[in-house]
Design a protein around this nucleic acid. Structure first.
Length: 492
RNA sequence: CGGGAAGUAGCGCAGUCCGGUAGCGUACCUGGUUUGGGACCAGGUGGUCGCAGGUUCGAAUCCUGUCUUCCCGACCA
């Protein structure tokens, strides 16, 4: 029978969970806060990863891999970074289990096997990487170092949510080392642009690029740049960050180089990352009450073909005809699935692939063969229409491009309609409570005011948008002078 | 971590108050009829009732502890 989905209007959180689980992206596991990413969800991640990986390599980066564990003494070297992450670290204290003498068949931690020094399971890898870079860098000729790693990290979050905030998650983290501040800042901005390009052009999720306030900055960074997306419930999601780390880590780990004049200088650093959280953002940007809606460029299956037949004879005729179509699609680089399984009827398959967000469905039966046509259905608009078999591959290719563009356009319209200017505190609250979305408002630039607004309105400054227009105004809370509006929202 | 809810067959649930042979729907298996929007008939398979203790002649049910999940908060570089 039907897989019942909660609708967005009924319960947005439950709708999201239903989609992730029933759409077979991921599932809960026996481990607190950790999820199992299922094959369909992992295929989506692989597509995203492959595109990003190519973008990183095209901008001169190489992949490497660093250890999962960070010795506590290294972890604590950069004070702000350590302090920021300390309260959510998993810590390894022992290296052996033994049979429990008081509890048959059970194991216990061997008290004799305590580590000399605790190992921190990485919540991020700056420490272990900068400790390594120290041995890689002597001269300006060793710079820049442009390295990325694909890895898992662990952050012991209080409350977890599938993809959006899990205790363990997959991500990439770029860590670069430069001779000058100018070059490092350029790298930080370049990678922010790479993220924005990827998220907008491949995931069809519009983002606002900006810089974080001091309060929201990455622990140990001089500046944190970010891309912010807007979900369908009007809440913001930080989709990626790129940090200019200054010389903080170089100083903490004593990483110096000799410049052209043989003068010793500290190295300048950046780090940048996106994670499986992007999948959560993708789901909440495009999907609807019938299920997932995936953008064609990263969808694991772009086209599904469902045969409609009476009896084995008809099926064989269809198998043959569809075989040709599949071959032609694959030759054009289209990810296609032909579902001629006999255990489910067409109606069931239609619903199933809608739930899974497959962009295009093609139904083909005896009637279509006669008329030399197929029935095409778009997931994004739910439209169905008959098209000629002749030139079908081209038709599908064009439609995939159109769907991709439509999803972005739709999301962008929603996002743009939900950027509202507020000039008074009442207006500000009213927008957050009722219209929801981003609010552009004046802020006096102090951390105290920012904290107070967060406390009173549960909204944070998502970023100060890049190329933000200057405009004199009064802080929405204190009435103090302000030179620009900043972007507020309630956020995930 | 605070408040609330939940965990019984793959999934969704009833049974728990008031202890006495574990049930329903769906899925799955077999056979048949079907197939243009989640098919129908018939016959079957499948569960240490989250886990660990305790009370009792007897525990899904009562008691204690613990793990996991969801919702609302706090937290979220």
């Amino acid at each position: 029978m039907a897989k019942e989905l909660t609708t967005r209007a009924q319960d947005y959180s439950q709708w999201y969970n239903d989609l992730v689980i029933k759409g077979e992206l991921a599932d809960y596991s026996a481990v607190r806060g950790c999820m199992v990413i299922k094959p369909y969800g992992y295929a989506l991640w692989e597509n995203m990863r492959d595109v990003l990986d190519k973008m990183f390599k095209d901008t001169g980066h190489q992949n490497a891999y660093f250890p999962l564990f960070v010795p506590k003494s290294l972890f604590e070297a950069e004070e702000k970074n350590a302090e920021g992450f300390a309260k959510e670290c998993a810590v390894v204290t022992h290296y052996r289990l033994i049979a429990d003498p008081n509890n048959k068949g059970k194991l216990m931690v061997d008290p004799e096997a305590k580590l000399e020094e605790e190992l921190i399971v990485r919540p991020t890898s700056e420490a272990i990487i900068w400790n390594t870079y120290k041995t890689w860098i002597q001269s300006y000729r060793d710079l820049p170092i442009l390295v990325n790693q694909w890895a898992n990290v662990v952050r012991w979050e209080m409350r977890t949510r599938l993809f959006l905030r899990t205790a363990e998650f997959l991500w990439q983290e770029g860590h670069t080392a430069h001779a000058t501040s100018v070059e490092a800042i350029a790298e930080t901005k370049q990678m922010l642009q790479v993220y924005a390009d990827f998220v907008e052009n491949w995931m069809a999720v519009p983002v606002i690029k900006g810089v974080k306030t001091a309060n929201e900055r990455f622990a140990g960074a001089e500046d944190t740049y970010c891309i912010e997306a807007l979900m369908q419930d009007g809440k913001a999601l930080q989709a990626g960050t790129s940090h200019f780390l200054g010389q903080n880590f170089a100083k903490a780990f004593d990483v110096k180089f000799s410049d052209q004049n043989n003068k010793q200088e500290y190295v300048w650093a950046t780090s940048w990352g996106v994670s499986t959280r992007l999948i959560g953002g993708l789901v909440m940007t495009h999907s609807d009450d019938e299920g997932l809606v995936l953008p064609p460029r990263i969808a694991p299956i772009q086209v599904v073909i469902v045969p409609i037949f009476k009896g084995e004879e008809q099926k064989q005729v269809l198998d043959e005809k569809v075989g040709e179509l599949v071959k032609s699609f694959k030759a054009a680089g289209i990810r296609v699935k032909y579902d001629n399984s006999d255990h489910a009827r067409p109606g069931w398959k239609f619903a199933e692939y809608e739930l899974k967000g497959v962009p295009i469905r093609i139904a083909i039966g005896a009637r279509d063969l006669e008329n030399q046509q197929v029935e095409l259905a778009r997931r994004d608009t739910k439209e169905k229409f008959s098209v000629a078999m002749e030139g079908l591959t081209q038709t599908v290719e064009n439609l995939l491009v159109e769907i991709q563009a439509n999803l972005f356009e739709r999301a962008k319209n929603y996002r743009d309609e939900h950027i509202t200017k507020a000039d008074t505190w009442d207006e500000f609250l009213n927008i957050l409570d009722n219209k929801t979305g981003f609010v552009l408002a004046h802020w006096d630039g102090t951390a105290e005011t920012e904290d107070k607004i967060k406390e009173l309105a549960k909204a944070t400054i998502r970023c100060i948008p890049l190329d933000n227009p200057l405009e004199n105004g009064k802080c929405i809370l204190t009435g103090n002078a302000s030179t620009q509006r900043v972007l507020f929202a309630r956020a995930y």
